[in-house]
């Protein structure tokens, strides 16, 4: 089942003097349980690609489907709601909230959902990511690797169908980076997510099912 699908998507920035084609016409899909890597040089359009899928910007042309729904056609409010329900973001620098403990980062999701916090759910997720004993710590007290694992926990916690990771390993050393990517791959399979990871580091793609290369706004399978 296709959880992410892009049909004829383009993105053009027009600053009045010249047009930048950040993303040329793209057709693309990610299946349930598929872990996709996107590599490519700086400025090639990777982040643009990812944020269009995440609904943070709209495509100039074409359509984005998330879970078979015309995601890119929704208005901003509905897109935000859908993003909250269906998409987990993992960013380069940690996207954790500095004044919440690891456990409270998860609990926030329940507060917004108006659902009750399931302690066991949270525990087992943190267990899987080997950060269970850190659940009462604030992000500033965690190491970079621990922080990214907490961010993965946060992204997985509300059970989205799609995980979008923009250079999640940029702030980590090689060993930690491999560890984080491995966890990401494992969770994608186990929880049947569709995951896209943007990275500079080609070695990290070993854990991925499909690798795409972005170059000057053109996406090709490697």
């Amino acid at each position: 089942m296709k959880l992410i699908e892009l049909k004829n998507v383009t993105k053009t920035f027009d600053d009045g003097r010249k047009k930048i084609e950040a993303l040329k016409e793209t057709n693309f899909a990610v299946e349930e349980g598929e872990f996709v890597a996107v590599i490519g040089p700086s400025g090639s359009g990777k982040s643009t690609f990812l944020t269009i899928i995440g609904g943070l910007q709209t495509p100039t042309e074409g359509k984005v489907f998330i879970n078979d729904e015309k995601f890119s056609e929704l208005n901003e409010k509905k897109r935000a709601k859908k993003r909250f329900d269906e998409i987990g973001f993992i960013l380069q620098a940690s996207n954790l909230i500095p004044f919440l403990t690891v456990k409270d980062q998860l609990r926030l999701v329940n507060k917004i959902n108006r659902s009750s916090f399931d302690k066991n759910d949270a525990q087992s997720l943190l267990d899987e990511l080997k950060i269970n004993d850190l659940s009462d710590k604030y992000p500033s007290d965690l190491s970079g690797g621990e922080r990214q694992r907490a961010a993965i926990a946060r992204a997985l916690y509300h059970d989205p169908s799609v995980i979008l990771a923009d250079e999640p390993t940029a702030s980590l050393d090689t060993n930690r980076a491999f560890e984080v990517v491995e966890i990401l791959g494992r969770e994608t399979k186990k929880k049947k997510k569709a995951t896209i990871m943007v990275t500079h580091d080609e070695r990290l793609t070993d854990y991925c099912d499909t690798v795409y290369v972005m170059k000057d706004g053109v996406l090709n399978k490697k």
């Binding site: 935000a80 859908k82 998409i87 917004i112």
Partner: peptide
Amino acid sequence: SILGVMKAQGISSKY
């Protein structure tokens, strides 16, 4: 910036 990240995660301005 942290509020921006929250909004990126789909947390509404209203909340």
